[in-house]
Simulated assay, not measured.
Amino acid sequence: MQLRSPAFASMGPIPRAHTCEGDDISPPLEWGDPPAGTCSFALIVQDPDAPDPAAPRRIWVHWIVVDLPPDLRALPADAAASLPSGARHGANDWGRTAWGGPCPPIGRHRYFFALYALDTRLDALQAPTRAALEAAMAGRILARAELVGTYEKQRAAPHRTG
């Protein structure tokens, strides 16, 4: 199973439209055939470089989605606004259940999109945190695919006088 995006290449820059400096919409994602027995997918998007890549102190969760249908092979741009039937958002580190795009305070950060093929649905989880989702997935993961994008805030041009 491979995860890719038509919006950015692996280790490439995430387009501004998907960040706090743009429309802040989730990027499109696509993946190949999962293993037999897949009952659902879960998605976690996180930044391990927070707050500063030179001195990271925590992993910042940007998006969690659980119970994506097993026959699904893609999420369009802005899928966070309207998830497929049965899928649910988890809680991100802004305390919201939605996509929260890259918005690094300093430097170029890496954003890890991890898709998990699971041998079960996670119906009991309502708006899970990353820790709750990881605990529920333990022993249930059939496959994992990862895509990494990067983002650094654009700097405003210096104001010139005269």
Rank of each mutant, 00 (worst) to 15 (best):
P158G: 00
E30D: 11
I44F: 01
W31F: 08
S26Y: 10
R57N: 13
G100T: 13
K153R: 15
A50Y: 15
H62N: 11
L72P: 02
S10M: 13
V66R: 03
T120Q: 00
A54V: 13
P104E: 05
W94F: 14
T120L: 00
R96M: 11
P84W: 01
P105W: 10
L133D: 03
P70H: 04
T150L: 14
A98I: 12
E152H: 03
A138H: 13
G90R: 05
N92C: 06
L147S: 07
L118K: 02
R121D: 04
C39L: 14
L142E: 01
R73M: 02
L118T: 02
P84L: 03
M11S: 14
A132F: 00
R58L: 13
A91F: 08
T150D: 09
A80M: 02
S5T: 10
L133V: 05
V45G: 00
L75H: 07
G107K: 04
A136I: 07
R88C: 05
L29F: 09
A17V: 15
Q2A: 13
A17M: 09
A77P: 03
L75D: 04
D49M: 11
A132I: 02
A17H: 12
A145I: 09
P6V: 04
M137P: 03
A50S: 13
P69H: 03
P28H: 10
W60H: 15
P6F: 04
A17Q: 14
T38W: 00
P69C: 05
P15N: 06
R108M: 07
V66K: 01
S82W: 06
A74C: 00
D24E: 15
H109W: 01
A50F: 15
A91L: 09
L118W: 01
R144Y: 10
T150Y: 11
P6G: 06
A54F: 11
V148I: 15
L43P: 06
D23Q: 11
A98F: 15
A156R: 09
P35K: 08
R160P: 04
T150W: 10
R16M: 05
A131I: 07
A124S: 05
F113D: 02
A17N: 13
A55N: 14
T38L: 01
D93Y: 06
T129L: 05
A81K: 03
H109R: 01
D123P: 09
A87C: 05
L3A: 11
A157P: 06
R108E: 10
A136R: 03
R16I: 14
R88Q: 07
G139I: 07
P128C: 00
C39E: 14
